[in-house]
Amino acid sequence: MHSFAYHRPKTIAEATSKRAADPDASYLAGGMTLIPTLKQRLANPTQVLDLSAITELKGVSVANGIVSVGAMTCHADVALSADVRKALPALADLAGAIGDPQVRNRGTIGGSLANSDPSADYPAAVVGLGATIHTNTRQISGDDFFKGLFETALEPGELIVKVTLPIAKRAAYMKFANPASGYAVVGVMVADTAQGVRVAVTGAGACAFRQADMEAALAKSFTVAAIKEIVISADDLNADMHATAEYRAHLVGVMARRAVAAMA
């Protein structure tokens, strides 16, 4: 690791003003990506701003049809929350399937979303459930948040404060996990929401995206049969040592059908 200075701000304002004063400073959430990145010397921040002491960034609440998750809430706290389990079990399932128990005790929703790893799970929840990202300056629709590979709509220094997820009528998340890392080779969230059916795919493309043809078919008939004939194009999908683009395209169909079947 290169050397850097370390600060642990107590408030959002203190964190954002320190970051504004130093464009080469880096926020540290759970550190499950940033610390390995630092260890490999792939990042070289002048200072690390550890967000763990900002209490207003932590916690889960459920009220008025909305699940609200603070940016610094760890995956285990979402997965094991009785309120989340009751209101939006697909979200608890998704959080409980990230990484491994040790990673879930450190990794956070805000860190995962800001990182926009193409194989991360939470982007499927944000896009699939029609969530809103609340930052220190504005609200960003989940549909507009992910811009590409490790790229989001966040401005430099902008800090995610919380994520609000509307409670779906029913929803399910299925993923084909990489057996070594737990990352999604492909993950699909299917949700039947007040705003219609949403199908969000992670792992397959540069960032999470919606599968419009499946949404239209499921809106007409919420059955496995309705999407069985839909062929997913491999164009622009990810290919790496774990899976070809064609295999990922195939998995999008399989995971979507499994998600619909799980709600039958």
Binding site: Y6, R8, G31, M32, I35, P36, K39, V48, D50, S52, A76, D100, P101, Q102, V103, N105, R106, A180, S181
Partner: peptide, 29 residues
């Protein structure tokens, strides 16, 4: 492994298992 995979460095932080190779010592202050 030193890459957050193997769990040989697992300790309890405030009662919960975490990988101590993927945390800064200052974070445990």
């Amino acid at each position: 492994c030193d890459t957050s995979q193997c769990g040989a460095c697992t300790i309890h932080l405030n009662g919960k298992p975490v990988k101590s190779c993927t945390m800064l010592a200052v974070q445990a202050d």
